[in-house]
């Protein structure tokens, strides 16, 4: 007869996630996000206003004012919302590496806190694009198994921090 042991997990001393201070990501990453926001805002603004300006200059009739209002309103609303999300969401963005798991928090309007245990990470990757090389940050990608959808990306880390986390992961897997 086989008896399964299935000990009760006592949560009394288990550290609660929200009580612990998260570590903010590098300010360089904020610059990158602001830069992306600025470029997209300009490009979308030009895409909206370009045809209207062309019609006003070369067309027979000027475009109706309501079109300017609709396009302008949409542009202001979407880009303004994005800017607000970035502005208010930046102080909330952070990560935490604990003994057994890694936690990442993001988002202002819709806040998401993801916790991935070290034992479930299949492999990791450090990615640094041209902007990352210019501003000095990188992204750590942690992949879990199968189609879990739980692949975690922590952007805005220094290369040294990302490497240290990776080393820690390797040590954990060798234990």
């Amino acid at each position: 007869m086989t008896h399964l042991k299935n000990a009760f997990v006592d949560l009394a001393d288990w550290p609660e996630l929200d009580e612990i201070q998260l570590v903010p990501v590098l300010p360089a990453y904020a610059k990158a996000r602001a830069l992306v926001w600025g470029v997209v805002t300009v490009v979308v603004g030009l895409a909206f206003s370009g045809p209207l300006v062309a019609i006003a200059i070369w067309g027979d009739n000027a475009p109706p004012r309501v079109l300017w209002l609709i396009f302008g309103g949409l542009w202001l609303l979407s880009m303004g919302w994005w800017a607000l999300e970035e502005w208010k969401g930046w102080p909330l963005r952070g990560y935490l590496v604990r003994d057994r798991d890694v936690v990442y928090r993001r988002g202002w309007w819709s806040r998401t806190i993801t916790a991935v245990p070290f034992t479930r990470i299949q492999h990791s990757e450090i990615q640094q694009g041209p902007m990352g090389r210019w501003l000095g940050y990188c992204t750590l990608k942690l992949y879990t198994a199968g189609a879990s959808g739980a692949n975690l990306e922590i952007p805005g880390l220094s290369m040294a921090t990302a490497r240290n986390i990776r080393r820690m992961l390797e040590d954990q897997s060798h234990e």
Binding site: W108, W109, S110, R111, T112, I113, T114, A115, V116, P117, R120, T144, A145, G146, A147, S148, G149, A150, L152
Partner: peptide, 24 residues
């Protein structure tokens, strides 16, 4: 594989949150 807690501003005011359990 991971656990995710999501809450938007209105949910926070109403004191509710979504939980997502990721399995492989």
């Amino acid at each position: 594989q991971a656990v995710e807690l999501t809450q938007n501003r209105i949910h926070a005011r109403r004191n509710v949150a979504h939980l997502t359990f990721h399995t492989s």
